[in-house]
Structures are given as C-alpha cells and as structure tokens.
Design a protein around this nucleic acid. Structure first.
Lengths: 343, 343
DNA sequence: AACGTCGCCGAAAAGGTTTTCTGAATGTAG
DNA sequence: CTACATTCAGAAAACCTTTTCGGCGACGTT
C-alpha cells in the first residue's frame, strides 16, 4: 500500500518473527521474554534485543485464549451523563490501569435491554470481572448470580444481598453535616433537599435528624423536598426565610441547591455565614469554590469509592472472598466560607 | 466450590459443548450459529436450541485471533476530569456500541509517559483503531505514523497534518455568537474570556472580531483574558462596567464566566437582557438553565463530535480513506433569556 | 446400471502464545 | 571410560473458533 504513509496494512510482528531473528525457537523466545528460567543469559539477551528491534508486543488475544483469563474487566454504567458516575469511573480506571488490566466501557443509558446486550458482549469478550456503576444510590436489579465472573456494584447497590455493593454513606454524611453546623454554634437548622424519591435525599435527612436528636434538637420546619436544582434552592430558601426567619443554618441536599440558597440569602440581605450558615453535599468544585462565599460541603469521596470497588474486583480475581451486602463508604467534610467566616 | 453460590469457577461453555449436545461437529455448529448455508434447517434449529440451552456465547478472543481483528477500539483520553471529554466519550461509545465494537477506556491523565504505556497496552490487545481525545483545542503531539491502526484525534488536534483531527469550530462559534448579539440590536459588545494560552479563547475572540468587522464595528475595549471561572467573570465584569458603562452586551468565553457576569450585573442593578445582554460558550446546562435569567450559549455539539469521530474510525476499519488534517465541526446557538427577553 | 449433480456434514488447518515434556550436550564423579 | 546429573533448547499440545475442502449419500438423467 503506502510504504511511507500510515501503514495500516503491514503485518504485525509475532513471536515467530522474534524467534527467527534471534535464531531460536518460539518456545525459547517465549521463555526468554517472560523471565522464565531454563534459558541461558546470552540467549535471553539475544531474544530481548530482537524483540526490541522489531518492537514486538505479545498478542494478548492469544495469551488470553490460552490462559483462560483475558486481563480485562467490564465497566457497565447506567448513565455516563450523570455527575456521579465520572469520578467513580476515574477511580476505577486508575486502579485497574495500575495493574495489567484494561477496561471495557459500556454505557447502558438507563436501558435494561441495552444493559443485557452489553453484558452478553462483555461475557463474550471473556472479561474477568465486572463493575456496575449506577447513577442513583437507590437499589437496582441484580445482574444475577450466575454471571460466571465476580461482580461489584458501585453507587447504586444491587437488590440482591448476595451481591457486593459499595455505596456512599449518606446517613453518615447527614450526621457529619449537622455535626459541623452544631460545632459552628448553630441550633436552628433547616433542611432543603432534592427529590423525595431519591434515597440519597431521604438518607441525608435521616442522618441530619439523628444527629440533631442526639442533642435534643429538631429540624426547623419540615424537610423541603423539591428538585436537585439551583432554582429550587432559591425558591425554597425564599419560602423558608419567610416562614422561619429565625433559622441560623440551611443544610442543602446538594451544592446546586446550596448555590440557590446563597443567591436568595444575598437577595434578602442576609449575610452568610454571620447571619445564616449554608452548606451543601457533593463538593462539586465548580460550584463550591466559585460561590460567594465559597461553599462548605460534604464530599462523598467517589473517586475513592471507584478505586475501592476496582480493588474488590481485583481481589475477587485473585480468588479472595470479597464478601457481600452493602458497604457504605464515609464522606468527608470540606469547610469553606459559607459556614465559617474566614479571618 | 460453592455449587449454589456465585459460581465463578464453573468452566465456561464452548462450541464443542454445543456441538456435542446437538450431536454434530463443531464445524457444523459454527456454521449453523453464524447463519452460513450448507446446513440443513432442522440441524441448524437443533444447534441453536442447544446453544440457547447452554447459554453459549462465542469466545471473541478466539474469533479475534483467527480473524486478525479484535472488534475493539481504544479510547485514549488525556483527562477524564475535564468537562469536555465526557460528551465526546458518550458520543463515541454510542456510535461504537451500535456496531459489534467494544471500547477500551484509557485515561493518561495528561501524562505522556502514561499515554505511551497505554498505547502499548492497547496495541498489544490488537485494537482495530484508536480515538484520541484531548482536553484542550490546542494541538497535541501526534502518536506517530506507524501505529499500524487508524487513529482519529478529537477535540485536541494532532500536530501532524497527516493525521485526521476533528475539532470544534471555535472561530465559527465566535462569529455565531456575535451574529446573534447583532441580531438582538447590540452594537457595543465587550468580550470577557478565559486564559490567553488556550486557543479556544483566542479563536472565539477572533471569530467575534471578524463578524464585528463585517459590520464595521469593533469590540468595546480589549478582550479581557483571565481564568475560566465564575470569579473572574464577576471581577472582569465589574472592571468592564466601571470603565465602559456604555456596553450593551457582554460576550463571555465560557458559561462559568457568564454566570459571574450575570452576578455582577445584578449587583450593579443592571438588568439583563434589557440593559445588557450576556451570553456564554459551551452550553453547560447545569449553569445555563439555572441562571437568572437563563443563559444564552453556544453549544459545541461535542456529543456529535464524538459520534462523528467514531464513525470515521469505523470507516477507516472498512478500508475507506478518511482524509487528514483538521476538520472543524460547527457549534449551535441556544437562545435563552439572557439575550432575549421572554414575552 | 452408470454417471453426474447437489446438499449436507465433518476433518483439518489456521491464528499466536504458553507450558510441558523430551532430548541433547556438557560437565562431574566413580 | 562409564554412569549420571545438570543445563538449556526445541517439539508439540493446548486454548477456541472459523473456513476450506473433501467426502458421502441421495437423487436425477441417459
């Protein structure tokens, strides 16, 4: 074809070529390159040089076929769009890439049919393990027990307790948030959150209430469930401050909602944090570090969660029992100016 | 092991098993399942039933080894974190997934060493093609001409004109933005943008200037280059309005900057859009649809770009010449309340 | 009855690598 | 010089699927 152009067509170099150049058999070449003994040092050097000269890289298809394991894992997401999937994916890719494992990415886009289709494809590729990442913390249907490879669920837990699921600890996050507000001297705390159908919203509210109860306190008013949006944050905060002007802290179910709360507080000339403290969840840096004042938030450590999930898959590959059920990973408080005045 | 538990250990079913159950040879079984002729209908049915009963799925490693093509492509990103990579990735995954192709995801995290490492790994896996996605529109070093498989660069173009690169048309986007502001009756347009070192910032400014020149107009003041942040948008807008109170439109280099501009305008009691029009780039919905008023923006159609890039890789796999050089894909104007008062 | 044709199935090879086993050569001890 | 251990290289099988080619039986034709 094009001898100097992009040579898509030149046959790729195989172990046979290396062996021929080094003047040995393929068996010896293989052993030399894989560091097995029974090869004289001089021979090994010759083979290695030949491999380097031809820039040989072993065909992992053939290796996988023989070994019975491909050295790949499937990453099955229900929704790439979601803001929460990406950090998990990064953490997982990072953990896998450190080994010799490569990752197949599949996006089912919330469609069960497509999910089963991708599952079949991945199993056909003989992935050694599966990581299933959902977009909500609400349980999702299990892939089943007879997949043939270890499966770990991240963010969205499986509804089968025999599966292992890694989820963020939203109840703990709610407690942590209230803990911080209490430490800031706040006592009249209201909670504006997202949609009630999300267990993340309910869990955070529960954690918040529990921690308050521990001090003999209650939330000011009912939890205001609405949308996960800045707009709802603005509107809800306006209603809240009209009805309960005495609140000294607004715990928001997400950073977006908190941004809305900050806007409304500013509109109403309530100073943050002196007059009212505001905080959010998720620690979405684009939102938190550009807010006025910068926004205190609870980081769910999602990248860590992805990393841990990948390590669990790894462990399962090694034959180690990784347990089952839901394991909740703690969040982390990130303090900024919206709860603590900077000096 | 655990006969009823998660059976990771049970040998996976192979074509031989199917053939034995159906009482035919593996050759016949293969032909039956792959829809080739030379198989009696009744035999084919028997094989299909056997395959279904054993839930057989052919080993794509073996198939790939034989066919010389693996049916996979590598997606090499320089940075998963970036906001621009994800939509491209979605578009690409979508396009590939529609075929029989699966995608290996690799994140080099902006590190050249890691990139070469991943490249080797992907070539060892015998990917049929590569899609390289960068995080900036500035040129990046080519992977080289002798990869052995077709490569398409998306978002960040290759510095080798012999490679094919798909990039957003930022100059056109700048023109498009000014076009819209002119259509809204604005004549005194200022431009607040991000970091000068980004070609995206320079290109958009260039496009804006070109379109203004076409009307015999110029930007009000110099382009204000700064950070891609809300904070900079606020500060720059404050300076701008102090120095040039007569501006009737602020074109912002990103939606984040535009959000900052909106904030400052509100602080200074300048009404948007009646007094000043504001618009951004990128159409980041979280920011645009929650702004007050909602933010007009230019969408770079990144998902489309990823889709197109994937199709180019596909075409190259089919042996079709996909050309070379930079191909710029047009953006799309999304009109919202920050430039046009809603009736 | 002999022959050609057609439809269907199976044997075998190929793809690239790893591993096991055999065998050759060299060195060492008796 | 023989017996034996040791070191290193190669032959061959295995992994699973697809494809090619040969063969076999049935059928139709002369």
């Amino acid at each position: 074809m094009q001898p100097t152009g992009h040579g898509h067509m030149n046959r790729v170099v195989t172990l046979t070529d290396v062996a021929r150049l080094a003047g040995v058999s393929v068996a010896t070449a293989s052993k030399a390159l894989n560091g097995r003994d029974q090869v004289k040092d001089s021979t090994r050097a010759r083979v290695q040089e030949a491999a380097a000269r031809l820039s040989f890289s072993p065909n992992r298809l053939a290796r996988g076929l023989l070994a019975g394991r491909s050295g790949t894992v499937g990453l099955l997401t229900s929704d790439l769009e979601g803001r929460f999937v990406l950090p998990i994916l990064m953490g997982a890719e990072d953990a896998f890439g450190a080994g010799q494992v490569n990752v197949f990415l599949c996006d089912a886009r919330g469609d069960t049919i497509r999910e089963r289709y991708h599952l079949r494809a991945l199993l056909g590729r003989r992935v050694d393990g599966l990581l299933v990442v959902g977009r909500q913390t609400d349980p999702r249907p299990s892939l089943g027990r007879d997949i043939g490879v270890p499966v770990v669920y991240a963010y969205a837990p499986s509804d089968d307790p025999a599966d292992l699921s890694l989820v963020p600890d939203n109840i703990g996050a709610g407690r942590l948030a209230v803990e911080h507000l209490l430490a800031c001297g706040r006592r009249r705390i209201a909670h504006v959150s997202g949609e009630l159908v999300y267990s993340a919203a309910r869990d955070r509210a529960q954690g918040a209430r529990e921690r308050l109860a521990q001090e003999g306190l209650e939330l000011v008013g009912d939890v205001m469930y609405g949308e996960w949006s800045e707009r709802w944050g603005r509107d809800a905060t306006a209603m809240l401050l009209a009805q309960h002007p005495e609140v000294d802290a607004i715990l928001c179910g997400s950073d977006q909602i908190a941004r809305g709360a900050l806007d409304t507080a500013r509109d109403l000339h309530r100073t943050v944090p002196d007059d009212i403290a505001v905080m959010g969840f998720d620690n979405w840096e684009v939102l938190t570090t550009n807010a006025r004042p910068e926004l205190t938030s609870i980081d769910a450590n999602l990248q860590q969660l992805g990393h841990t999930a990948a390590q669990r898959v790894f462990a399962a590959l090694e034959g180690i029992d990784i347990g089952s059920g839901e394991q909740a990973l703690p969040g982390r408080l990130v303090i900024r100016g919206s709860t603590v005045a900077r000096q």
